[in-house]
């Protein structure tokens, strides 16, 4: 009997392994995605100057904490093509839904960023210029664009990786904002 169980083990192990692999093929799973260690943590400490030659003020942790209502923090760069794609969506969120949007301009030349904002419009209330990318590390970003939802108490409640373009992505952002507003 023992022997039979022993001989059946390989097949059983293979089935279990197959189960995991099948799970891994789930199309909603992105093998490259990295979960954020920041969610449910307070906004990391940082202070960023404004992007040179723009009128928009810079961004800091203190500023984020003192707003008192949920905000979006969007990490973008002028060299990032998908950022252009989501820019219109962000603008619309600001104009129509009254979302408060903060920006972190990541590893960008200030002049390029200023041109970019000039060309596409500037929906951001504040923009911090993270030209060396250090604050990006503080936020644990793995690429641009990334968008965070911060609640009224300055706690990061949600993170979205990649451009917010699809209706589903927008719904997720809206839901996260609503949840953040409800909590405070």
């Amino acid at each position: 009997m023992m022997k039979k169980i022993l001989l059946a083990m390989p097949a059983l192990v293979a089935v279990v392994l197959g189960g995991f692999l099948f799970w891994g093929l789930n199309p909603d799973r992105d093998p490259n995605a990295i979960p954020s260690a920041l969610v449910s943590e307070p906004v990391p400490d940082f202070e960023l100057p404004p992007v040179e030659s723009t009128q928009t003020p810079g961004l800091s942790a203190a500023a984020l904490r003192s707003i008192g209502e949920p905000v979006l923090v969007n990490v973008f760069a002028s060299w990032c093509v998908p950022c252009r794609a989501e820019h219109a969506v962000l603008t619309r969120l600001v104009e129509q839904d009254g979302v408060r949007l903060m920006g972190i301009n990541y590893m960008d030349k200030p002049a390029d960023a200023a041109n970019w904002l000039e060309e596409l419009g500037n929906p951001y209330e504040r923009i911090g210029s993270d030209s060396e990318g250090r604050v990006g590390i503080e936020w644990g970003i793995s690429g641009v664009p990334e968008t965070f939802v911060i609640d009224a108490n300055g706690i990061v409640v949600y993170r979205y990786v990649g451009p917010i373009v699809t209706p589903e992505a927008q719904d997720e952002i809206r839901a996260a904002l609503a949840a953040a507003g409800g909590q405070s």
Binding site: K4, L7, P10, A11, A14, G18, L21, L25
Partner: peptide, 23 residues
């Protein structure tokens, strides 16, 4: 999914045969 199906049939099939015939 197709390859996994192929894998499943080949590996699980042969190992089951093994469990049955090896004794």
């Amino acid at each position: 999914v197709y390859i996994l199906g192929l894998l499943g049939v080949t590996i699980v099939g042969s190992l089951t045969l093994y469990a049955w015939r090896a004794p």
